[in-house]
Amino acid sequence: MGTTWPGQGKGVIAVRVGVPRTLSYFSFYPLWKALFEGVGAEVVVSPPSNKELMDAGVRETVNDACVPIKLYHGHVEALKDKVDILFLPRLVSLDGKVTLCPKFLGLPDMVRYSIAGLPELIDLRLDLKKGRHELYRFLYRVGRRFTGNRARIAAAIRAARYNIQRYRKLLLQGLTPEEAFSLLENGHAANRREKGAGIKLAVLGYPYALYDDYVSVRLLEKLRLQGVDVVTPDMVAEPALRRMGKSLPKNLFWYYSNRVVWACLYYLRDYSVDGIIHVTAFGCGPDAMTNKLIELEAKHSRQVPFMTVTIDEHTGEAGVETRVEAFVDLLKRKKGLL
């Protein structure tokens, strides 16, 4: 399909924008979606991660990248022939203080030089270190790629911000991203989960590792099937997270890593969880620090049981299952529930 935009009028087929269903998708999809639809584009999301996408990603990506980055390449591969524009923003800083993992910063370049036959890219830079109006400016610039109508872009940005706020509220209530997306879209979500049978676990990790069922080998679901109440970093309200950050002598340099450490401190502060599981991708640079920090905090300072689950492209379900089952058994026996 040719580049027929910006002809957003009656009878014109909408421009299709591709959004990979991984990495920042789990944090920002409702924002992107409302924005694109507000400016008249059609949003196309890649399918949920699967073996085919993983294989394609492993094939295309530099060898020493982590699984989530490889998978991202697979998602791009799946989208590139189905859309007119690919949305691969360069996310630099989301809180105006620290940056994301360096791989996020270089992502548009990695993709551009690894994958041939890409459609037009939106790889605008989002760096909130430039000031608190930078998000608006970023969204505006994205909107300008689709329409020249300023009022229309402004309305789309308002809708987008409203949508992301509602989304974050739903996450705080304990919904998983996919549950929240479907609630925002269709107005109804899956049945509310029943309360667990007495064990509460904090499962910490980056959204793209926790909520991608293919990557995490359905870890959250497995825990819930064992009657575990699962809490994640996304279920801690922003102000509470920030307070935890202030209690540390020094914070880490990476956005998502800080959130994991702060959430860990939050759940440990009043011993409200029975144990902590850290989900980390094999070879993750920032996690070399993050994992050690939260392990020291949990196991050594507070004697709360802690386990690391490492995932890579060869992760078998059996190994994760055995460890998780044993970990839950340990907690149940400790509490006298078994």
Binding site: K299, P305, T310, H314, G316, A326, F327, L330, R333, K334
Partner: peptide, 11 residues
């Protein structure tokens, strides 16, 4: 008599 920690070799 209660398991407090364990580890298992990876792949």
């Amino acid at each position: 008599g209660i398991v407090v920690d364990f580890a298992m070799n990876t792949v």
